[in-house]
Design a protein around this nucleic acid. Structure first.
Length: 260
DNA sequence: CGATAGACCTGTTTGC
DNA sequence: TGCAAACAGGTCTATC
């Protein structure tokens, strides 16, 4: 489910709920969902943060790393008993980890000893380092730009929705080869990524099926999507029919007329 | 090295 | 109508 804006929304809602509380127990309903790298001891939640699409609940010595993958949710009231995979028990509340597709993961480990996926993440989209390294990195790649945007080691947090939306906003085809993108276009694209993600964070994420934050609230960005989920509909810029294809193994929607 | 397919899961939508 | 294939916000591994 969640890309950067949805994970950021969850993190913010978690802060008002469990910051400063103690994590007393992680109840495990499915063995593959929860992994312990160190023996469990109750953890006072000192800091709640997001890195890419990862949620990090950090204590003094240990931390909990959560990735919701496609259908994970963290909420006090599960929608369906049968999809409960784990439960995080705190002093004054308990959050169910509900995950229909069982791709989501919770890892309990030492702080600063994160799992490989987290360690390998590229810069956050707002990291100013990207203003320097984004264009050179693109020049080194012969892949379509969409592959690059989905690669979490190149830039963290973008998934299928916001990759398409960013390309559309920048008037760049998701199929364009990275090394054919000019310096000026790179700047436009980076601005578009930041704009699209920022707007989605303000709207508390995109919900079309599963996503809710830790207060059970849906995101309201869905109705503002301009290409994702709109294959066959008219381009909102030029009126031509939006096309869909497969890039990087993912459904991709774009306007063949105004995205070059 | 890179690109692609497959695996991991279960529910919903689409197409014949 | 019914059934099977394709598809869904993601990432990791195997293979050529």
């Amino acid at each position: 489910m969640p890309e950067l804006p949805e994970v950021e929304t969850i993190v913010r809602s978690l802060r008002s709920k469990i910051l400063g509380q103690h994590l007393l127990e992680i109840k495990k309903f499915k063995p593959e969902t929860v992994a312990y790298r160190v023996p469990f001891v109750p953890l006072r939640i000192e800091e709640i943060s997001r890195r890419g699409k990862y949620i990090i609940l950090a204590g003094a010595d240990n931390e909990v790393i959560i990735h919701l993958r496609m259908t994970g949710r963290l909420y006090e009231k599960p929608e369906s008993q049968r999809f409960i995979r784990a439960q995080l028990v705190f002093d004054n509340t308990a959050l169910y980890f509900e995950d229909m597709r069982r791709f989501g993961r919770i890892v309990y480990c030492r702080i600063n000893n994160p799992d490989p996926g987290l360690k390998a993440l590229g810069p956050e989209p707002w990291d100013t380092i990207l203003d320097e390294i984004f264009h050179p990195a693109l020049q080194r790649s012969k892949k379509p730009i969409k592959n690059f945007l989905l690669d979490q080691t190149k830039i963290a947090g973008i998934g299928n929705i916001y990759a398409d939306e960013s390309c559309f906003h920048a008037h760049i085809s998701p199929l364009r080869f990275c090394n054919k993108i000019t310096k000026a276009e790179t700047k436009t694209l980076l601005n578009s990524i930041r704009y699209i993600l920022e707007k989605a964070v303000i709207l508390r994420g995109t919900t079309f099926a599963h996503f809710i934050d830790a207060d059970g609230k849906r995101g309201s960005n869905y109705e503002f999507l301009k290409v994702y989920g709109r294959k066959g509909a008219k381009c909102l810029h030029c009126g031509h029919i939006l096309k869909n294809t497969k890039v990087a193994g993912r459904t991709t929607v774009y306007c063949p007329y105004c995205q070059k």
